[in-house]
Design a protein around this nucleic acid. Sequence first.
DNA 1: GAAAGTAGTTTCTTTAAGGAAACTAATACC
DNA 2: GGTATTAGTTTCCTTAAAGAAACTACTTTC
Lengths: 127, 127
Amino acid sequence: MKKEALSSSSSGCKTRILAIKDTMEILTGKWKFHIIGSLMLFEKLRFMELLREVDGIGAKMLSKELQDLEMNHLIRRTVLNTKPLTVEYELTDCGRTLGPIIDEIAKWGITYRNTLYHKSETSESLV
Amino acid sequence: MKKEALSSSSSGCKTRILAIKDTMEILTGKWKFHIIGSLMLFEKLRFMELLREVDGIGAKMLSKELQDLEMNHLIRRTVLNTKPLTVEYELTDCGRTLGPIIDEIAKWGITYRNTLYHKSETSESLV
DNA sequence: GAAAGTAGTTTCTTTAAGGAAACTAATACC
DNA sequence: GGTATTAGTTTCCTTAAAGAAACTACTTTC
């Protein structure tokens, strides 16, 4: 049996771990998924609409999160020269590729809840 | 055109958003994905093995993260009555269902990197 | 000219996350 | 008895994330 070896530094493992780290750094924080989810649903939203749509977020947070997402090319910010000046946010093509991740996460969350309910009846490890 | 309405409180939207919140709360922090990923790769790992495997983590963090994961039924902790006493960690069935999420996230991270490289050549929005 | 709506920014404060180092406690080896 | 290993815990400290409230600046409506 090996002893000092182990360490997953083998082949694609490092790449994989890095890729996961990358993704999670980009999507970090309490609000990113919610903002992206809203933009997936509504296509285009203005700042004030997002502020109302993303339940509980404040202007400062929203502003910061939108900047983050824009820097990472996931959303596009367009200033419209309307009367009182409005700004439109929408997903880029790149941003839209997050669909499958968000689907998986939502799917898992729903299944997980159901699993817990059933498990709690029959015990399991439950503390 | 609607004005005050909007608000995605429609049908399954709330459920979906809650499910995403649930999932992300369970998998929050810098280390959970890395720990789960390691356990997917190695099946069973002891505390010290995880400490070496999960690059950069400290004993306190590892201990806390393992407790979190165990509370959420994603991993199982087994004390073996070996000579100096060892503890074995492994994924539960529930923990193993995270596979697809982690795959999607890893896949996206890799694609995202490639996309950036190509976009940076042809410009895009790039700051 | 006062009020309200647009899109934010600034300041100040609290809370959470994370890390380094030392420490406990049990056992085994020499 | 001294050193090492296992699996953590405890203490102390720093940094990052988040939030509330007030404020800027411009325009439109009444």
